[in-house]
Design a protein around this nucleic acid. Sequence first.
DNA 1: CGGACCTTTGAAGACATTCAAGGCCTGTGG
DNA 2: CCACAGGCCTTGAATGTCTTCAAAGGTCCG
Lengths: 244, 244
Amino acid sequence: MKHMETIFACPISCRNCRMSSLCIPMSLRSDELYKLDQIILRGKPLQVRQSIFRAGDPFTSIYAVRSGSVKAFRLDDDGREQVVAFYLPGEIFGWDGLADNNYQNTAVALETTSVCEIPFEQLDHLASSITSNQNYTTKLMSREIINGQRLIALLAGNSAHQRLASLLISLSDRLALQKLSSTGFRLPMSRGDISNYLGLTVETVSRTFSYFQKMGYLRVNKKEVELLNLDALQEVIADSDVFA
Amino acid sequence: MKHMETIFACPISCRNCRMSSLCIPMSLRSDELYKLDQIILRGKPLQVRQSIFRAGDPFTSIYAVRSGSVKAFRLDDDGREQVVAFYLPGEIFGWDGLADNNYQNTAVALETTSVCEIPFEQLDHLASSITSNQNYTTKLMSREIINGQRLIALLAGNSAHQRLASLLISLSDRLALQKLSSTGFRLPMSRGDISNYLGLTVETVSRTFSYFQKMGYLRVNKKEVELLNLDALQEVIADSDVFA
DNA sequence: CGGACCTTTGAAGACATTCAAGGCCTGTGG
DNA sequence: CCACAGGCCTTGAATGTCTTCAAAGGTCCG
């Protein structure tokens, strides 16, 4: 299966990210996470809906997900929330705070979650202790920019089926990166979060799940998902506009 | 008019960026562009459709638009082009090349354009010579991340009318930043580029232009645009879903 | 057990797309 | 210089995907 090809962790290289899916955000391997432990601040685990930071908070740190998951969202002028990213274990977030020394997004735990807080000043120091590479921080940020552009491309040019398939493949790939099951997993976010993120309605997301299940691409029960035919999902993404 | 409030150039602070419109990318003031001249490489002006860099090219430099305009696009798996950004004078692009030392996007001139090439190694040096601020590079990148997230929010949650209005307001604001006319200007990109960027079809973009003109919000002739009622356009963006 | 919330499904409606055609401008070549 | 081919833009009509409106089943938790 195409998607099962070896995928390196992302700190430096991420060439195996397939363009077709939502990108794998930059992430750390477990051994790198261990190194983090020696530098970072770790608070007690977060509960569902608890925030790591809120839009407007002063910027101090970058965060890495240790376990659980996080959603980041903007508040539009009219107060509507717009999800811009989900972060899984190993993934790093909080870059939006740098520009103005205030976070632009709000980050909240989707489930019981523990995160590493990495004081920004120490990030580059940490970076050089992990790799010989310089400008580690800028590389991580560059990847976040690329990820954003992939999501833009997804939203601008794809149907509901393609969007949901992309998200599922993305989650699958990102879990595989952490040596977790890439075919059977639990969606950490609600249908509402998914639909918001993908620019659809909850009804459309629900219908698309049902459609994929009817076609035998996957089985879904609440938040439990089992991907049965990854090639078919890839096909959905690839097909420019051909629907059965 | 709301949109006429003072807007600072973006190098460090950009709080006055209104969330409702597409963000003003990070940009330099003209005096800062002058400083650039002492450091950067400047080639001969680019012709229409000429590329600054192409996806896959080795990363060497960041670029700043001196005059003219640039579009950046991704190539999806199936070869379709997806515009992810337009850059106007003073604006900086090329961050996508850092992550893997290869540009992920292709950047091409939309008209006769001149750009500054800033060798990446020298960027931080340049930065500190302009401002007393450190981590200048990371701030610029953070802004690009935020810009991307605004576009995501625009694509995910807004109608065709809202998307086009947002683009027009964004262009207006960005031109104002360069002391250019913010109400009468020439669109540097084609309808095809606009529709691609906004995730719409050319027909829809054309119809929306016609609609705005019929409503007296603007006058459009080919690529010449005159914004007649910026408040009304703001209103279009603000109205969550109310259509006449 | 009851209530709130989430999810699913159906049906009607709406916005955007697709298909189609005509006008306009540009540039190239006779 | 004019003719003509090819883009690009606009407009109309029909189609379709997604949304909206509506309702019911399910789950979690007090």
